[in-house]
Design a protein around this nucleic acid. Structure first.
Lengths: 192, 192
DNA sequence: TTATTAATTGTCAAATTTGATAATTAACTG
DNA sequence: CAGTTAATTATCAAATTTGACAATTAATAA
């Protein structure tokens, strides 16, 4: 019939560039010009393939949630059958597994959510899913644990982890990262 | 001699408006026009009293650090002589003491610090001061505690607290706040 | 080869934001 | 009242960003 569509590749290409720009310049500083330059495309192609600014951030959020949900599932599947919580802790606080760009994008999305109730719902739900996954791990590793203890420890683990991730872009916080990991292990040891 | 200067009042007035705009529109969205409107002043007066955009954020950061440092000191002074850590925990997780605008401004400053090494140093130092204050409280309340335990618990408390504060602007996170407080209390109970 | 559909490029106008400076007004002192 | 200093206002030019649309080019099927 006609020329084949490359819309899906272009959309991915644009969102990749968008993430890089958000990480570098913040959500407001990620202008269409910069995104286009980062993607190696003409600015009009952003409009053609995705749309205006609002549609751009919508697309970014959707992809972000979809991707991270999948990655969390995969990570959970890869954990061993026993002692999963401690293995996960090693994974979470391993600097090699920290993705600066990912952290900056998620921070930017949380900030953007403050003035956008729809986005706020999505990010809240996203956070809750993560906490629930941790709670499930806890009850798997340590059944018969008091329900309130489970939710407190899960909230503590996630809080400490989120905080470290959001601060690490500042750099030079190795000690804080180590101490935070120890704090998480302290909480886990309460479950025995 | 001459007309009296109102520069100091004007500067405070402008920085107040700046904080309000940063909280509402983010650090990039806080344009000079919006700040001027929020302050009830002409845009040129911002330039006259403080300067351009860069000087504006410098002034904001300096005031932010100075003010919070003072507030932390005052808060510490107001704590009782015994059981100070638990009293502080009640204070930190009391919704009545949560200042949304303050949280949003500090979050914005952390984000801005990522591309500004000088600002990053200041925010890192600011964070460290807070952690050290907690560590001091711990050793006051529970002397003879192992040093590593002290720093781990302090990192945990601060991490959990910072995380809750940065997420609460999303709203509807009461359960997370309560669970987080419980997690902090769990850490504190390890000190006995 | 031609028709068809989509990708790509080019261009323009409107709105926003900022930096800068001149001109004017206000408050105080002697 | 006159002089002096600072506050305030008015206005301009430049740069940035965005939205929209027309024109062109490319790839495939019949």
């Amino acid at each position: 019939m006609a020329r084949p569509s490359v819309k899906e590749q272009r959309q991915a290409q644009i969102l990749d560039a968008y993430e890089a720009c958000v990480a570098r310049y913040g959500i407001e500083g990620a202008t269409l010009e910069r995104i286009a330059e980062q993607a190696g495309l003409a600015r009009a192609l952003i409009r053609h393939n995705i749309g205006n600014r609002d549609e751009l951030i919508d697309a970014l959020v959707e992809r972000f949630i979809k991707q991270t949900r999948q990655e969390i599932d995969e990570m959970m599947d890869e954990l061993p059958k026993r002692n999963r919580l401690k293995v996960l802790t090693e994974w979470l606080f391993d600097p090699a597994h920290s993705d600066t760009q990912f952290v900056l994008v998620s921070d930017a999305l949380f900030m953007a959510a403050i003035n956008d109730p729809v986005l706020a719902d999505k990010m809240r739900k996203w956070t809750m899913e993560f906490i629930l996954a941790i709670e499930k791990l806890i009850t798997d590793d340590y059944p018969d644990t008091d329900k309130k203890l489970v939710s407190a420890v899960a909230a503590g683990i996630v809080g400490i982890y989120f905080n470290v991730e959001s601060l690490t872009p500042l750099g030079k916080l190795d000690k804080l990262a180590k101490d935070s990991k120890q704090a998480v292990l302290l909480l886990i040891n309460l479950l025995k």
